[in-house]
Design a protein around this nucleic acid. Structure first.
Lengths: 258, 258
DNA sequence: CAAATAGTGTCTCTGAGACAGTATGAG
DNA sequence: CTCATACTGTCTCAGAGACACTATTTG
């Protein structure tokens, strides 16, 4: 434990006196940032939103959207603010449109050359919306398929954070209903299946998947409408249901041995 | 996002010049602490290690062991250091004796009256060792059964952090083999079952549990020895096996409806 | 018509859970 | 002997997965 300052253990002063004299700046300077691994499905590929760094360090490299934490807002709020700023969805819609959850916190020494920077990472699942931030200025922000990230110059330790975020998404789809957040407002069971297939990188059996989803109470709610699929039977349309958890879970198959 | 400082986006200076001129203290002062929810089983009860606060704020209240993060060590190392200092196990033994993992990060404004304090919480599972820190000075540090925490005056938002840590432990026991970390070096299947029962607060069927554990490859390894149980057949002794994951998982039963 | 897709039927196998039964040692 | 505990046998049921099948639409 750090050596506490004398005042911290002086029982003679009151709490009010203590707080009035307390100067947090005495401690070693540390910065806290909030970064968000924003994930969506585009053209059947799990993709992450990255921004190109305009300034030092890692100038020109790609980085997660994020910024410094502000003292007057919670970390959860900061993550939603970052998400809203970078995607163009409004802050108030963030919880309706996206799923946002805390991922992990990274604070290895040397991970940021500017000094001691601790990053609280979040992961967000989003439908494939038209995003002004990504569309207007493709040089500053764009979606990268996670399968293509091997060729991308990533800033800081963001490769590891993205990997952790992707693994979180894969795991969460097993036992929650959050996969539906990747889908548009109205979607078919096949859309949902293709979401699972994109996130997990596997093929799932059509019929078994259909039955599984329908057997989870409240995962999806039928709208009553159909949508022609180009060929074959029109597919029934659904919206997200109230359920948050899938019990029993839908487990990832073992990696393909073909 | 915070307004970046001009130098952050000035493309004319070199990275070396930029870093030399960078002053992290310009940002709003924030402190980062690392707190650990240390859990063990004592007298059949899931218990958490708490220390009584000697200084302001929350003087006299019970708090998680922790301290300020240091710039030259990773968060994981800081958590193990805290664990070692408070329990008396040596830092180098920490990974052999305990399971330590990051839990979550808490940064709501107002959670610490001293100012903007962000806490990275860890959770640790430990066997019921004789702990000098808890034994020598019972007024400063002691184990609290989590079932009794309703009557305990807890500092900061540590009630929430403890609740999250306990839920993490309950969830992890479903799909990992970490329950064995709560047991001494050599243990019986019944010891392991009582560990699950203590953490989950349920009773498990003896025979079914026995078969389940034995069917998970590498969960436990028989030592070849027996231990008399006081009454009945002596029980075979086991050590931890190499497996980290339990597939398929051992799910918590639904809450008792009796 | 063929092809493609939505959705259903049906079989097998694994594993969870209930519960009874057997073996062994203490008092 | 009784009792408690370790461990085994066995039955039932739910669900995963393989896979064939039907229905419905487009071209």
């Amino acid at each position: 434990m750090n050596m506490p300052l004398p005042a911290d253990r002086d029982p003679e002063i009151s709490e009010a006196e203590f707080l009035a004299s307390y100067d947090m700046g005495r401690y070693a300077p540390v910065a806290v940032t909030v970064d968000v691994v924003v994930l969506t499905i585009r053209q059947g590929q799990l993709s992450v939103l990255l921004v190109r760094r305009a300034g030092h360090p890692f100038r020109g490299a790609w980085a997660l959207p994020g910024g410094f934490a502000q003292a007057d807002e919670s970390l959860d709020v900061a993550a939603r603010r970052e998400l809203a700023e970078e995607t163009g969805i409004s802050f108030d819609d963030a919880d309706a449109v996206a799923h946002v959850e805390q991922l992990a916190t990274y604070g290895d020494p040397g991970r940021d050359p500017r000094g001691h920077v601790v990053t609280v990472a979040y992961v967000a699942f989003l439908p494939d919306l038209p995003l002004p931030a990504a569309g207007d200025d493709a040089a500053d922000a764009r979606w990268w398929p996670v399968a293509d990230l091997g060729d991308v110059d990533l800033a800081f330790d963001h490769d590891r954070i993205i990997a952790d975020g992707v693994e979180r998404a894969r795991a969460k789809l097993e036992y929650t209903t959050h996969a539906a957040v990747f889908c548009p407002d109205e979607f078919t069971i096949a859309d949902l299946r293709r979401t699972y297939e994109a996130v997990w990188g596997v093929e799932l059996n059509n019929g078994n998947f259909w039955r599984k989803i329908r057997n989870v109470d409240g995962f999806v709610v039928a709208t009553g409408d159909d949508r022609p699929t180009g060929k074959g039977t029109p597919a029934a349309l659904y919206r997200r249901g109230p359920a948050q958890w899938m019990v029993p879970p839908l487990m990832r198959p073992d990696p393909e041995q073909s």
